[in-house]
Design a binder for these strands. Structure first.
Length: 559
RNA sequence: UGAGGGUUAGCCAAGAGGUAAGGCACCUGGCUUUGAACCAGGCAUGCACGUGUUCGAAUCACGUACUCUCAGCCA
């Protein structure tokens, strides 16, 4: 890649070690990996880890990575998801080139291999129903027992399997099973189901098939067909590895891929299971799969996170085999690091309160230059305007300041960022006693620096916007969706840990005029407030809507 | 004693018999017109525990504890 992104130096991991050795020993001259999602939902940050591992390894070792849809269950899959998944992978910055595959494109070959197993006496048609099969399977501590149909003749199996394919039997009446070992301590080897009958249209191959292979019968063989060298999946598939290998050993496959497992990503303050994510959408707890609070790639993208930041995050968390919990703050820190570098600065007053500069003439205005980035003069300046009435943030004023507060107070002075030093002289309140307006004076000689005419240093610098020039916008502030670090853990319903304040909508925010009509893609730093970007769905010229991507680090608020 | 994994600092994580990388977090100090960023420094006499092998063990052996995964016609 040619990006100049910040990426933590890639540390070694067990997969890199394995690949290094395979390349060095000549076992492989180049590597082929794959990212194999089932198109049954939207991708989330956990998938991003897998994508970065698979595509990243291929990139770093000069190999290639395929995108393969593991579309073996038409009951759950949809075209919509296929498109959304492609888009997310591309958004993350990866390219499968010519190598887009579907497990369903291998259905005929898989079917022939099933027949091969039947002829070898290694597969049989099962007439038992699902409950009976379960009863025969045994338990974790007890062996299973053979099905009465286990010893059918090859001819009968061939006949029945052909009729299954022809659609002669209804769903659930028969399955094809591998004939392995009902007493195996590894349950996935107790005559696993290979094919089941599903009369449903398939998003990729239409209604060509009435029987569909299970994951186990499709995955390794698809890897072999595509010439995958390193088939990398998550740890829960580890117990399937002997089965994965059993098929490769017992079928005339064209290659011998190897499966390796890594620990899936667990992130704090969110849930990651597809079922729960879907429930949040269905119950209307979030606005959709792309709600900016969702851990989906669609949500993260809409929120304004950059792909570079997500990649840096995946690089930073590493790859291991031990169960781990990554704190969301690490993801947020990656976003800040990326945006600090690239985001132009601007000022926005989120909770406006008016400050009237009594010693500045009404109707007058003056143009000031503000740097777009304090450390990058090459990013240029922008014009802002100083006038008699300006907006400042309500949080930047305290009538009776708490200890350590160094913003504006009555009688106190503060520097307006890129502007003058102002002093607050009085407070105007309504009958209820709420502050409606502040009055103050400015020091005309204080344009440069933070020192007053008599040499004192002003402690606070605050952001502000000219009332005469400001544009009004809606700003959405997001917080974590859950108030518990592990809403998923324990017996309690995860929904009871929902954070009621996960979104706060402020509708009367005052922004610099330059933000009106700004490019939708540009991420800005609203100085002292965080990083923001327009909501791609809801923001338009008539109504500006900004999402807060992430706050700035705040050493003051922590105290 | 069903099988298979895992355990290195608060959170991740490198390490493959030669004396504990790195990142985040945290703490000091510096710099600063963002309480931001940045810079400098600090942060494991110890690698779940125990025993053994060895001149030498996070690395090897044995045992123990805790923890995760598997009993879908899901992936």
């Amino acid at each position: 890649m040619t990006t100049t992104e910040h990426v933590a130096p890639t540390t070694n991991n067990f997969l890199r070690t394995i690949i290094d050795e395979d390349l060095k020993s000549g076992k492989h001259s180049s590597i082929v990996t794959r990212f194999p999602p089932e198109p049954n939902g939207y991708l989330h940050i956990g998938h991003a880890k897998s994508i970065c591992i698979n595509f990243g390894l291929a990139r770093d070792f000069g190999g290639r990575c395929h995108l393969r849809f593991d579309d073996t269950n038409p009951a759950k899959e949809e075209l919509e998801y296929i498109e959304a998944i492609k888009e997310s992978v591309q958004w993350l910055g990866f390219d499968w080139g010519e190598h887009l595959y579907y497990a369903s494109d291998n259905f005929e070959q898989l079917y022939q291999w099933a027949i091969f197993l039947i002829k070898e006496g290694k597969a049989y048609v099962e007439d038992l129903n699902a409950d009976e099969i379960r009863a025969h399977r045994g338990t974790l501590t007890e062996p299973g027992t053979d099905s009465p149909y286990r010893n059918r003749s090859v001819e009968e199996n061939l006949d029945l399997f052909g009729r299954m394919r022809d659609g002669e039997f209804p769903d659930g009446t028969r399955v094809l099973r591998a004939r392995i070992d009902m007493a195996s301590p590894n349950i996935s080897l107790r005559d696993p189901v290979l094919y089941r009958i599903i009369h449903a249209p398939h998003p990729h191959v239409g209604d060509a098939w009435k029987i569909y292979p299970m994951y186990d019968f499709a995955h390794g063989q698809s890897d072999a067909i595509e010439g995958i060298t390193h088939s990398i999946c998550t740890l829960e598939f580890e117990s399937h590895k002997p089965l994965y290998e059993w098929f490769l050993d017992n079928l005339p496959v064209p290659a011998r891929p190897r499966q390796y497992e890594f620990a899936r990503l667990n992130l704090t303050y969110t849930v990651m299971s597809k079922r729960k994510l879907q429930e949040l959408v269905q119950l209307g707890i979030v606005s959709g799969w792309d709600d900016p609070r969702m851990p989906t790639l669609a949500g993260i993208k809409r929120r304004g996170y950059t792909a570079a930041a997500v990649r840096a995050f995946c690089e930073q968390i590493g790859v291991g085999r031990s169960d781990s919990w990554i704190d969301v703050s690490i993801l947020e820190e990656c976003v800040r690091t990326d945006l600090n570098d690239t985001a132009p600065r601007t000022m926005a007053v989120l909770r406006p309160i008016k400050l009237v500069i009594d010693n500045y003439p009404a109707g007058q205005s003056e143009e000031l230059q503000a740097a777009n980035h304090p450390q990058k003069p090459e990013m240029g300046n922008r014009s802002i305007y100083f006038t008699r009435e300006i907006w400042i943030d309500a949080d930047d004023f305290m009538e009776t300041p708490s200890k350590g507060f160094h913003r504006l107070t009555v009688g106190g002075e503060v520097k307006l960022r890129a502007g003058y030093i102002v002093k607050c002289t009085s407070v105007v309140k309504d009958e209820q006693g709420t502050i409606v307006e502040l009055h103050g004076e400015y020091d005309p000689a204080s344009r440069e620096g933070i020192h007053t005419a008599d040499g004192r240093k002003v402690k606070g610098v605050i952001h502000w916007v000219s009332a005469a020039h400001a544009v009004t916008a809606e700003v959405r502030l997001f917080d974590r969706l859950f108030s518990s670090a592990n809403p998923d853990r324990g017996a309690a319903d995860y929904k009871q840990f929902l954070n009621p304040g996960s979104v706060e909508t402020l509708s009367e925010c005052k922004l610099e005029a330059g933000l009106n009509g700004a490019d939708l893609e540009t991420r800005y730093q609203f100085e002292r407030m965080g990083y923001f970007r327009q909501d791609p769905n809801d923001s338009h010229s008539g109504k500006l809507v900004f999402n807060r991507i992430v706050t700035l680090r705040d050493a003051w608020i922590k105290k």
